[in-house]
Write a protein that binds this DNA or RNA. Structure first.
Lengths: 184, 184
DNA sequence: ATAGAATGAGACACCGGTGTCTCATCTGAT
DNA sequence: ATCAGATGAGACACCGGTGTCTCATTCTAT
């Protein structure tokens, strides 16, 4: 049974990433607690959503830390980031699908920080000659998160095996869909 | 002023792709009509959402037809598909973000048909030796639509210039983020 | 075993959105 | 000019979700 905040938040992400309009009853049931207890932990729906967003962003920030994206060559850093972020792909799916969060300044700032770190990674990679310069760092960052969210949804719905997710994400994003006769 | 069904549907997509929980007032205002007229055209919110989904899927099907994805070599077919679908990227963003649509069997079937066509394209490309076989056709299809939706959001929010959208999408998806010393 | 705290189940009022109605106004055709 | 049809604005009841409360039950520490 999940009684502490973080466990409830994890359960809430699982439900909300699929259906952002899920009722509090459903979220409470998913967390294994009653609606009354859910209300005791979080003052209301708005607060819950906000905390779920903040919690998700903290975990994304943790993944960026774990991957040490600021260190080493850019390609290896991105591969580390993929491995670190894929287990929390559902969180990214939630953040991506939740536009109303962007009204909250605190959430917005947290997101901006993480996005800037990823953009910086791509910019560094472009300067190192690792990443293509025809595609803007902003677009690379956005597309990367789109694919991470896509992986989250696909795994949740059983369309992609968790075992394959990191490989599929990294290979498609880095190498593209086209087959190459020789690797650079 | 938008009085016919399709104009209203287009306006509704513009609002709903950003905020799926937008009120009918907002949708009506975006379409330039009153809430009363909106109700005269569509019996209710549920019917409106369903029609918006069907309308979006019809346009995606039209894009697949326009691109003639079943003809020619797979890479050219995909590039044609990108050009055809990018103008309606917002529609894909709406479909991607709307999970509750999947309860409707008619919508589900329509979607399944289009997804199957795209999967067949990737399968054909893999058999032709154009697309990589390490990535499943199902994942390629899913990732492609994820990126199309991402383009739709990015363009809507002004983070990506419409002029660059087709190029950015096709190049990243086909070629990946890595810079190559030689093209195949 | 017992007291205190925490939880679950249910009841209930409140609120915002929706669906429906009426009526005034506007448009277009004759 | 006149009439029929369509539209907009507003009012209003209904409904589902939310927020709050109470009370019985369960868990936990002493």
């Amino acid at each position: 049974m999940a009684t502490d905040r973080d466990s409830v938040l994890e359960a809430a992400v699982g439900v909300l990433s699929r259906r952002p309009t899920a009722h509090l009853d459903e979220i409470a049931r998913a967390a294994g607690i009653s609606r009354a207890t859910l209300h005791r932990i979080f003052p209301g729906r708005e607060a819950l959503i906000r905390e779920v967003g903040a919690h998700s962003l903290r975990k994304v920030a943790g993944a960026l830390d774990t991957a040490a994206v600021e260190e080493g060559d850019a390609q290896s850093a991105l591969r580390r980031l993929v491995d670190a972020v894929v287990p929390d792909a559902a969180l990214c799916a939630f953040i991506a699908g939740e536009s109303q969060l962007y009204d909250d300044p605190e959430i917005n700032e947290l997101w901006e920080i993480q996005d800037a770190r990823v953009r910086a990674l791509f910019l560094r990679g472009q300067q190192e000659g690792v990443f293509r310069i025809e595609l803007s760092a902003g677009w690379l960052s956005e597309a990367f998160f789109d694919l991470v969210a896509g992986v989250g949804w696909a795994v949740q719905d059983g369309r992609l095996a968790p075992r394959d997710s990191a490989f599929s994400l990294a290979e498609l994003f880095l190498g593209g869909a086209l087959r190459r006769t020789e690797t650079p």
